[in-house]
Simulated scan of single mutants.
Amino acid sequence: MKIILAQPRGFCAGVVRAVETVEQALELYGAPVYVRHEIVHNQHVVDSLRRKGALFVEELDEVPANALVIFSAHGVARVVEDQARQRHLRVLDATCPLVSKVHNQGRQYAARGYRLILIGEPGHPEVLGTLGQIPAQVTVLLTVAQVEALEFAADTPLAYITQTTLSVDDTRQVVAALRRRYPQIVGPDTRDICYAVQNRQVAVRALSACVDLVLVVGSQKSANSVTLRDIAGESGIPSYLIADGRALRREWFDQRPTVGITAGASTPESMIDDVLAALARIAPLDITSLPGPEEQVQFRLPAGLIARQ
């Protein structure tokens, strides 16, 4: 069976930073370390950290007073930050810097008097955190149809910001619809969507052009992983989002297709290796990689941690 790996794939710099934050906190301060929400949307990563002594909670009232708590890569609302201070919790903020950039953009637009639109998935942890970071009313939408249903007056000063993990193409269509309805609207270029998300979307398009089937390794809860699966499916070939090798179905490979493999930004390389091992039990593998950019981005760890030497 011929296997072609996408490049880049898997962990991005924001996820690396978040996971290292938990690991180093455990090394420096000892267990338990509390983490509000799953640090990233990948069960294997969460389970691995749990075995090392991380305790995952949904709300801060589950954290003992004066304990150490880590905020996930998705970011949190200001009310959560305030609650942590009131309960005298020691906080390490693992919010991805690119998510923090969106928070800053939103606050700046609000301070300048714009009505804000957030292009994102309602209920997603990143969207909830962003809404809670902006001291103004924000309209959340995700589709062109929702743009057409907006009731802002034509001359309303409007600005938009975006969730970092969306499909670049879908977001570009929504922005274009906003500009058609409200030519005065301002906002960041869609290139401001997370560099890692963009790179992985470009890579899966290239991959889909030269394989018969695409496997995306990632969580069903991971927005960027779901998007990769959808993009591959748009090419007209079978595409499957799987958590690990156990999710494979032998009948997918009866015709010995050329299989493309990529992974969401919160998926560790070990899970790709797990999928390859499962495929190798079906047939001998011939593995190659597509050319693609080597990501060199690194984010500094939160204050309060000593970086590994």
Rank of each mutant, 00 (worst) to 15 (best):
I237V: 11
V202G: 07
L207C: 02
R107P: 11
L131G: 02
Q173G: 12
H103A: 01
K101V: 04
D274C: 04
R180C: 13
E269S: 09
Q220H: 14
D155T: 12
A6M: 05
D273W: 06
V69T: 08
K101R: 12
C194I: 04
S100M: 08
W252L: 07
A307K: 14
A280T: 06
T258W: 12
E234G: 12
E269M: 08
A303F: 08
I134V: 09
A263H: 03
A153I: 10
S72F: 09
G245M: 06
L26S: 05
Y114M: 10
L158I: 07
A203T: 01
V40C: 07
R250E: 15
A283C: 13
Q83W: 12
L49T: 02
I242H: 08
E59P: 08
D169K: 15
V33K: 08
V147P: 06
E20C: 13
D244H: 13
C96V: 03
I70M: 09
S208V: 01
V19R: 00
P8K: 05
A13I: 04
V297T: 11
L60S: 01
V175Q: 00
R300Y: 12
P284M: 14
L290P: 00
V202Y: 13
D189L: 10
Q184L: 11
P257A: 02
G14Y: 00
R50N: 05
H74M: 11
V19I: 15
G236N: 03
G10T: 04
R17T: 04
Q86A: 13
A73M: 00
D254Y: 13
R300E: 14
P157N: 02
D189Y: 05
L68R: 00
R115A: 13
